[in-house]
Nucleic acid binder design. Sequence first.
DNA 1: GGTAGACCTGGACGC
DNA 2: GCGTCCAGGTCTACC
Length: 326
Amino acid sequence: MAGTRLTITPPKDFDLARDVCSYGYFVLAPNHWDPASRTFMRVLELAAGPATVRITQGDASSRRRQRGAPLKLAFDRTLDRPEQAEAKRLLARMLRLDETDADLRAFHAIDPRWKKSGRGRLFRSPTLFEDVIKTVTSCNVAWPSTVKMNERLCAVCGRKAESGLYAFPSAKKLSRTRAGTLRGRCSVGYRDQRMIDLARMFVRGDIDEAWLTDAKTPDDEVFEFLKTLPGIGPYAAGNIMQLLGRYSRLAIDTETFRHAKTVLGYAGTDAQLTKKIKAHYEPFGDQVFRSYWFELWDFYESKQGPSHTWERERTAKAFTAAQFKD
DNA sequence: GGTAGACCTGGACGC
DNA sequence: GCGTCCAGGTCTACC
């Protein structure tokens, strides 16, 4: 790529392979992780149009872990100064560079199981809007359909970069898209109007990201607000909470019940399991989601190998609750 | 406050 | 190849 090249100095323990491959969204379009080269690539929607960024850490030819080494960004076009700042801001959100080494030490003090691996950061999207829409695509559907919806949303509604790759659609674009297009061409089904309504709320400013991320805003108020959004119920709200950096709640879905039965050895009705699950994670206080998630992720890695080696095509098919029932 | 049924897609299964 | 059933979380109507 012959465009702008930038460098970001991450926190000392940041590990690109570990910290990108830490949450399922890293395999959803427009994200692309290449296990062989340990390179992350996606299109960012910037002020002057879409730009593809390729991210490596340290010496790409080395197989050694290079925690804390500079992140090298290579773009497919030239970015002016404001765009460079915008790109860095979006990538910092995506990679959770705001989670400092001290933040992670605090998490590991509560749950020391992840101290050795250093796990703590959870990959997310460059924008809250993309995180919310991705969460809606993960509701009431098997994982392969979530993968497909995100691919189609980008291909049908996203802008094309010089690289030929597509961006995730902006809120503005999605707010003007017809429900029939989303349903017919993006396979989002009944989620069509809910996605458009969400996009319109973002465009109008009805969703106040500053308030949602303000440390002074109580978790309970954020959770209750999220549940008022179209297509967002208790599971989705819990998931968006963690995407906002609020780890005090679980996002309970069928996968949680599968985990409770097969890994934790619990039995009973869903209501009984929910009580046992909450009791199990209670000791982790305001970090329950991370403790839950890395237990789950550990299980996936025990079945599929280290997450940074997962091929996109295989991952698209492998990760469904049904695959792990036994 | 709790719950049954509808919503939509895609995969599994039986014929 | 076709039809049927089922899984998946949210929403609405109803009790």
